[in-house]
Simulated assay, not measured.
Amino acid sequence: MSRPRAATLRDVDEAALALPEVTRDPESGGRPGYLVRGATFVFSRGPRKDAVDPRTGAPYEVVLVFRCTAEDKEALVGDPGSPWFTTPHWNGYNAVLLLERDLGRLSPEEVREVVTDAWLVRAPGRLAKDYLDGLDP
């Protein structure tokens, strides 16, 4: 049995834009952020002094940020060998971080799941409920 193909930034883009009422900022090109009714649920950020590679001490280049629940954050960050992490800056915030270079450690299905979960956290309650209701057969 073969391993699923590695996820790419295109998978993040497609997963986010497939959800209801999502906008991409910027609309094309650049490092995107995804919003649902003005609330950001996934975005990328450049180097910060508080996000450094523990092996080299160099700031991480591009970090993807996904909103989540506190429970999901604990599970994702606490899983040994997981590519998900947090930094002191994100303590107390319901979000997990992923190095763009580690995106390929995930499958497109895993990306779709985490993007959808991030959207559900930030979408207005009625919109989220309608979306979930639409998934039921």
Rank of each mutant, 00 (worst) to 15 (best):
R105H: 05
T69W: 05
A51G: 01
D79S: 04
E71W: 05
L35A: 15
G46D: 07
D53L: 07
E109W: 01
T56G: 13
S2N: 06
Y131T: 14
R3E: 13
A58I: 04
T86A: 14
L97Y: 10
G46E: 10
A39Q: 15
S107M: 03
G92N: 09
R126I: 12
E27M: 10
P88E: 10
D136W: 06
V12E: 02
D13Y: 01
E14T: 05
G81Y: 03
R24P: 03
E109Y: 01
V36R: 13
L35M: 15
R48K: 09
T69E: 14
R5Q: 04
P124T: 14
A58D: 09
D13V: 09
H89F: 11
A75Q: 04
L127A: 12
W119R: 05
R31K: 09
E27L: 13
A16I: 01
Y131E: 15
G92Y: 02
L135K: 09
Y60M: 12
T56D: 14
L9W: 07
V115D: 05
D133M: 05
A70P: 07
L120E: 11
E14K: 03
L9H: 03
P47I: 13
D53H: 02
A75N: 02
G46Y: 09
E21C: 11
E74N: 05
A39T: 15
L132V: 11
